[in-house]
Design a protein around this nucleic acid. Sequence first.
DNA 1: GTTGGCACTCGAGAGCATCGAGTGCCAATC
DNA 2: GATTGGCACTCGATGCTCTCGAGTGCCAAC
Lengths: 346, 346
Amino acid sequence: MDTPKPECESAISMLEERKASILRAVVQEYITTAQPVGSSAIANAPGIEVSPATVRNEMVQLERQGYLHQPHTSAGRVPTEKGYRFFVNALGPGRELGAMQSDQVRAFFDHSHGELERLLHETAGLLSNLTSYAALVVGPGTRSAVVRSIQLVRVASRTALAVAILSNGAIEKGTIELDELTTDADVDLASAALARAFIGMPLDSRLAAGEGLDESVARLVDTAAAVFNPVVDGDSDHVFVGGTARMAGAFDAVETVREVLSILEQQLVVVSLMRDVLDRGLTVAIGSETGVQPLAECALIVAPYEVDGDKVGTIGVLGPSRMNYPQALSAVAVVSQQLGDRLSEG
Amino acid sequence: MDTPKPECESAISMLEERKASILRAVVQEYITTAQPVGSSAIANAPGIEVSPATVRNEMVQLERQGYLHQPHTSAGRVPTEKGYRFFVNALGPGRELGAMQSDQVRAFFDHSHGELERLLHETAGLLSNLTSYAALVVGPGTRSAVVRSIQLVRVASRTALAVAILSNGAIEKGTIELDELTTDADVDLASAALARAFIGMPLDSRLAAGEGLDESVARLVDTAAAVFNPVVDGDSDHVFVGGTARMAGAFDAVETVREVLSILEQQLVVVSLMRDVLDRGLTVAIGSETGVQPLAECALIVAPYEVDGDKVGTIGVLGPSRMNYPQALSAVAVVSQQLGDRLSEG
DNA sequence: GTTGGCACTCGAGAGCATCGAGTGCCAATC
DNA sequence: GATTGGCACTCGATGCTCTCGAGTGCCAAC
């Protein structure tokens, strides 16, 4: 009884070291080949010093425990969701990004000019380039930003535009309808009142901006302030999607592609997928873990980015569940870090 | 010699009436079934009163003339690009939109609130819904719009945002970098100078806005005005794409889907595809007519929309070359009309 | 506990016959 | 002379069988 054995399997994922190595190797192999993995392929893998027979024995166990799956009796093994999950959990914090790619990221943020929306859009492109999957970028929330400029501008006889410029570079806007009687002077008064009330304050401050004004102007001010409610509530966080074409290439059933595209078109779903990561840090959701049925064959990696110490937004990549996790994870990590830095500077 | 015969085939597309009917029927059938069409299917079609044998004889001719193609000897016929082209040219100006769909469009524009970008985005969604293909919407150009508000706002110690609000509801913006020495007062001066120079003018007016100011402020004004150059040149026309998922469902090779998505991700390409339609009116480009190789299996329908009598933007749908042309054409026509009306009102 | 050996499984792929949609052509018909 | 029914022909799709081989599970030997 002097052989070391685990005295208590505290977690299901507590696998003996060799089983873990084999599982890792299977996942690794499947990620690169997209083909069911046989025992001999694993036995030949570096770091595994046992015969195919031994590997087979372990594989039977791994299958019983739900980490692997056999498409049919005489085929190799494919990782299950649980298998991927183990693989990801066991992943050390590696620097998997090649020097070339790190340079690419650095060069991108060094040379990036232009305005916030454009930057976020291009960031999505960058992230997609790095990973070959679809990239998602959710803009910084308005919570920690302060209003730098706010105004109400008449653009047509019955329409005015409320526009706020925030300290984080975001521009929030909404239209309101005017009745015919509203004079240009009223609009100007309301605009000035908004400026007095909001400039220097966060957009979500609830203020009595209309105080001491004509009732009609006060109503105008309230209406204008109200157009920013959805922004404040985060219901309209803009999300930028890039690299859908690359993602399409990663699946082989057009139906799957269609379903995933359909999800990506629903901003609300995407935003809610990404939102709850804000206070969790770098996160991976595999298949059903996303909570969205059509993403059953996908994995989603999300990380928040910090501006001046606050987690204000998130970026992520969406790919097939057999994605290159190490690479994707570090791409997301690096880009979120650098994006945060870029937005913090100045 | 008293049988009527065409004395002179002025155009290649000059087909005897029966051949034309048959060709139309083939295209129609292929559009709905996506299967090669046989002679008997056509003989049974309404409006064709001849036997399959006759149809076959005509089909041989149509194939020789390049309107049809036979995938293999014992299969039905498939329209060529030229075949589709004939079909489209022969299409009368029909009202193909069901009452339900017309209502949908009307309801949409009646209830549409909100700001320009959002409206255009949702218009893309609407158009995609109506047609089941991908929809493209290019926002109104700035040429005929007038500046209602323009300002320069400092958002960070070394960054300022130039924002212009135009009479058509568009908001144009760009960042400029400041050097450390620039004071807030300088920024305010520049902002005021911009306002004096531009408000009430089109954004592309070339003005000496910096006249009579400190050189540093004048330089600031010039830099700020310059950020709108790409906008004025039309290089940054924003394009809204909707319904990519639906479009994906219309192709059966994932590779095709990938290629088309890849095109749609390149705003520049999309905008240039749509731009040259501005002064042409409702237009159909089939396959190679688009001038973009990856769209060989696609067709693109584009129409401009008019605001106050000026053609300022374009909308369109992109689908497979075997798209439902009558329906798509009238959807594009109706939506472009109504979008123009909606943007003209007020 | 590990391993080589071995019988077994089962999908992939090749070869082959069948089926039938659709053709081209020709002679008969209107 | 245009149209048509008839008919032989073509060729992909479908289904069957056979083979091949990758990969398995199990067992006996180490």
